[in-house]
């Protein structure tokens, strides 16, 4: 694995809450352009790992490097800057319902530009408004640019959340069960879109999912946790149904 190509490096990561050890010495690396599915049953430590990867939760031990930056050694401000390289998509879209779709997308740029002009699309620079509209077009929703986020369906909201993540021009997208709150059809559409955009833009994608079908279809590598330990780290092509079944026993 070439060092220059590494986007994410998780090394010997452990996380405990009180006496409960949720992650136990998890190590893996992610190369540029990879699409990785993270599997595991409820309570296996997936969400904790997700939060630790962006240092939203501080690990008990071990380190995380994103694009060669060791998150544990960064100051608060430097950590905020470093996070701008990571786009997030959550289980729930986490849009501000009372603001317009375009304002929500432009907020993605707040990671690198704290200007008050970015608070509301009406005051944002023209170039950014146009970029937000182009991203909205990419996720197939240019026609709803004038709507409030609260007026959108679950699937549309999640697409807008994807556009917001792309607005950051991230090197890595972390998606925590992005289809969990959607119906099967909307879920598949969102996953298809996310995978395609990540591949087209050359963005590395790590997504947590309970949907084995999505994991097999939209990844080229599968990681799996069981009781806080990394038990599978294999190419999607090589993985067998039996191996996946053992995760849910």
């Amino acid at each position: 694995m070439s060092k220059d190509n590494l986007v994410l490096n998780v090394s010997n990561l452990s996380k405990s809450f009180g006496d409960t050890e949720v992650l136990k010495g998890v190590s893996f690396s992610v190369e540029k352009g990879e699409a990785i599915a993270l599997l595991g049953h409820n309570g296996s430590g997936k969400s904790t790992l997700f939060n630790c990867m962006a240092y939203l939760l501080e690990p008990t031990s071990g380190f995380i490097r994103v694009s060669e930056l060791d998150f544990s050694k960064l100051s608060k401000k430097a950590l905020r800057n470093a996070r701008s390289k990571i786009g997030f998509i959550f289980q729930k879209h986490n849009l501000v319902n009372r603001l317009g779709v375009l304002s929500n997308i432009i907020h993605g740029k707040l990671s690198t530009d704290p200007s008050p002009r970015l608070w509301f699309q009406k005051f944002a620079p023209s170039a950014l408004r146009l970029k937000a509209l182009n991203l909205l077009e990419k996720v197939g929703l240019a026609h709803i640019a004038g709507k409030l986020a609260g007026q959108l369906s679950g699937g549309q909201s999640q697409r807008v959340a994807i556009a917001r993540a792309l607005m950051q021009e991230p090197e890595l997208i972390l998606a925590d069960e992005p289809t969990a709150s959607l119906d099967p059809q909307a879920g598949t559409e969102v996953m298809e879109l996310l995978y395609k955009l990540a591949q087209d833009e050359g963005i590395t994608l790590v997504f947590v999912t309970h949907n084995v079908e999505h994991a097999l279809k939209y990844s080229n590598r599968i990681l799996a946790l069981k009781a806080g330990e990394l038990v599978i780290d294999k190419s999607t092509k090589e993985i067998t149904k039996e191996e996946i079944d053992t995760l849910y026993e």
Binding site: A54, L56, L79, R83, F90, N94, V96, L110, S111, L118
Partner: peptide, 26 residues
């Protein structure tokens, strides 16, 4: 709703931006 606040915190938006873009509109 803490969701939008968490989303902006996660991408590294500052405290003032989070207040103006997520907390006050909500």
């Amino acid at each position: 709703d803490p969701g939008p606040v968490k989303a902006l915190n996660a991408i590294g938006a500052g405290k003032l931006s989070t207040l103006m873009c997520a907390v006050i509109p909500s």
